[in-house]
């Protein structure tokens, strides 16, 4: 479902809300019968709030977009601010694309995120299995140790990790960017919670059929926790895609930059030209916005499921 489709739907709905709102109630309320007028007022109230919040959350980006579309002849510092560009132009975008190796950064970001997601899915769910479903010595201590890593600020660890990465020759490599995010305690916790809900009978009957633990993990448990794996993939992707500080430290070769780093460098090199900074920022978020529009069901569902299980 595209944003445009939704937008159209919303506009259509706004136009016809007066006539349609009475058919919309799916479950007839038993208690209070609302008159069409109070229902209209109620809907008006709800939509006003919804639109107000949309302005709050999307408005700043639209303001940035408006700036990016303003031509060099227009004063972007005009007061009062002009929300609609006088002569909208793509010239700023064209100029930014010359200075900004967008496709290279997009490739770097995509590769890093994809491998990080893959590693997390495998490593977290492997570690989650015994923590969810086996009895062994040291289980509680291991689990608490893993959970405690969530509270250790990365900024404390990044100095030694940086030194380690240098020792391993991982500076300016994809592996170096990926390393600190290859496994997360959150992922282990999330998948553990999912594994715990799988009935033990399934595991026992598989064991009677001669499956070993690895086969049970791969063939019984993993397919049953697919929604949680999707959730973990979404979380890891968001974290990895937006990551800034670590790539900044480990990468000094600009051809290895990810999108946030590229945009930061761009903002630095065009320090006062807000048209170009705005255009570069808009270009850099287009991929994630488009990805989000197509995958919004998974993003929204993933975060909601993560909340229930975590």
């Amino acid at each position: 479902m595209g944003l445009r489709v939704l937008k159209d739907e919303e506009e259509e709905m706004k136009k016809s809300s007066i006539t349609q709102h009475s058919q919309k109630e799916e479950k007839p309320k038993r208690i209070k019968k609302k008159t069409p007028f109070t229902k209209f007022l109620y809907n008006l109230f709800i939509y006003s709030l919804l639109i107000l919040m949309t302005i709050v959350t999307i408005g700043p980006f639209l303001w940035l977009l408006s700036t990016a579309l303003k031509s060099g002849a227009e004063n972007i510092f005009a007061y009062p601010p002009k929300f609609i560009p006088e002569q909208p132009t793509l010239a700023n975008f064209a100029r930014v694309m010359e200075a900004f190796p967008f496709w290279r950064y997009l490739f770097n970001s995509s590769l890093v995120s994809f491998v990080t997601v893959l590693l997390n899915l495998v490593l977290c769910s492997l570690a989650a299995y015994p923590l969810a479903r086996m009895k062994f010595k040291g289980k509680n201590i291991i689990f608490i140790l893993i959970l405690s890593t969530m509270m250790i600020p990365f900024q404390l660890l990044m100095i030694p990790i940086y030194l380690l990465a240098l020792d391993l020759g991982l500076n300016n490599t994809y592996a170096g960017v990926i390393l600190p995010h290859a496994t997360t305690a959150f992922g282990i916790f999330l998948i553990r919670q999912a594994f715990m809900t799988v009935p033990y009978e399934l595991e026992e009957s598989a064991r009677i059929d001669g499956c070993n633990s690895f086969q049970i993990w791969l063939r019984i448990l993993m397919p049953l926790v697919k929604p949680s794996l999707v959730t973990l993939a979404i979380f890891t992707f968001m974290m990895s895609w937006g990551d800034f500080l670590w790539p900044l430290i480990i990468l000094d070769d600009t051809s290895m930059y990810t999108l946030p780093l590229g945009v930061n460098a761009l903002a630095g090199s065009f320090s006062s030209d807000w048209r170009l900074i705005a255009a570069g920022s808009i270009i850099s978020i287009l991929p994630i916005i488009i990805f989000f529009i197509f995958m919004q069901k998974y993003f929204i569902g993933g975060v909601m499921k993560g909340a229930v299980k975590g």
Partner: peptide, 17 residues
């Protein structure tokens, strides 16, 4: 659904932007 997604846009956008 549109509004839920709209409110989630800042979450998926990188902190730099």
């Amino acid at each position: 659904g549109f509004f839920r997604s709209a409110y989630f846009v800042p979450v998926v956008t990188s902190m730099v932007v």
